[in-house]
Design a protein around this nucleic acid. Structure first.
Lengths: 232, 232
DNA sequence: ATTTTTAGTGCACAAGTGTTGACTTACGAA
DNA sequence: TTCGTAAGTCAACACTTGTGCACTAAAAAT
């Protein structure tokens, strides 16, 4: 079960150095991808990453256990590669959103729908990120945290240039984005766990998600920097 | 290393049925608790729950592997007990907050500080909940979700009786509470991961947490039910 | 054409795993 | 005092695990 073609990155970019068709390197990359896919596939069946065994991974990848060492020092190193990949996916989402521009009509709901679609088509990466973000081994958790932090920073930049919240200082904008991203990743878990077919539940879940974001954006728009707020 | 006395529940409540000092039952409970504590302790050292082995648990609990079966069918069942316990801890927090009443001055910051303290003194349970909420085995994740859902519902009731948001329908209030709880649990991970001693970082983290909650409550106060909101 | 490199294989090993059944031993009821 | 119950122990089982070493074969370099 091949889950996806791996990292097409730039499909038609004849880089002179790398893609000079080293036939062996190609082959190596293929089993390397098979290993990564195997890990993702196992997680897709309900397992958590750091409960995966090296042998288990190589088994579903269709290679012998010792082959693993030709590509990674241990499973943790594979995990870090997975973190990096997932980070790329996150930034790809941001880039696509950037290109599409902010929808003018019913902005939040549209964004949520786009997000939902993106989560589902990149199911495995989101499963990994949402799952290991607070759970797994400390080193991987740290790496994911970095990636998410970076994502938040980029999102902050984008929103800043869009001038949607002219009232907010860059720091406050970042704090808002952190809140939004947490809400997003949390929703990702819900989206991925949702049994397919139940349109009613999906709708309720989407409505809830939309409302939460509306509250956040609503509060953000009216935010003033200095004051000590809250009801006195 | 005994981490805590287990479930004091009601320290001075001579229940006629249970506490008739069946010396054997006492002993059984003790090793049962040792098993539970062992699991928590292992997680406290950076492991995720469903990577724990039965033997591993019994080893740090100081009993022989086969003893495990006198208390739990398998590790998953232990996990479910852990979920239940953690749920109790969550509700205990709510109850204490209820008894203390809402602080009138600088309400949110106070609450955050109380919450931080509570998370640190109940470190293990929060570590478990925050870690396995989106990570571990599906059945445990589901159980945690139930517990959290219930917590949200209770919190909704409390806020309703406090009349803090008279503008919100019960459903909207629940949605707000969901947002708050997610933000709380997310902050719990940060709080627990924070290296001790770094007061500066702790302060920044707390400020961020406080601000996020302020935005949410601020947005909630101004929320109107009917309208389709957001910037058009 | 020959040699070097290297991705992938096969085999082996020590160590750890979950689970079993028969056992001890001390509590608590008779 | 006797005796059944059951928490905990012991030894053993059939596996799985991560890892090391020698090997093959095909691609790349010479």
């Amino acid at each position: 079960m091949s889950l996806r073609s791996r990292q097409p990155s730039e499909p038609a970019s004849p880089e002179p150095e790398e893609s000079a068709l080293p036939l062996r390197g190609q082959r190596k990359q293929r089993t390397r991808d098979a290993l990564i896919d195997a890990a993702l596939q196992l997680m897709n069946e309900g397992r958590s990453f750091n409960s995966l065994g090296l042998r288990e991974i190589t088994r579903v990848a269709g290679v012998v256990p010792t082959s693993f060492y030709r590509h990674f020092r241990d499973t943790n190193e594979l995990g870090l590669v997975l973190v990096e990949e997932s980070g790329l996916t996150l930034r790809r989402m941001l880039r696509e959103a950037r290109r599409a521009g902010a929808p003018v009509k019913d902005m939040i709901r549209r964004s949520v729908q786009v997000y939902k679609a993106f989560v589902l088509t990149n199911r495995l990466h989101f499963l990994f990120v949402a799952g290991e973000r607070s759970g797994g081994s400390p080193v991987i958790r740290g790496a994911i945290r970095n990636e998410v932090e970076q994502f938040i920073a980029e999102m902050t930049q984008d929103l800043r240039h869009l001038q949607i919240f002219p009232n907010l200082s860059p720091e406050s904008l970042q704090m808002i984005c952190g809140l939004v991203v947490n809400t997003m990743l949390n929703a990702a878990t819900d989206i991925l766990d949702l049994p397919p077919g139940d349109a009613e539940l999906a709708r309720a879940q989407e409505d809830n998600f939309v409302k939460q974001l509306r509250v956040i954006f609503f509060g953000a728009q009216l935010w003033r920097e200095d004051a000590e707020k809250g009801e006195p």
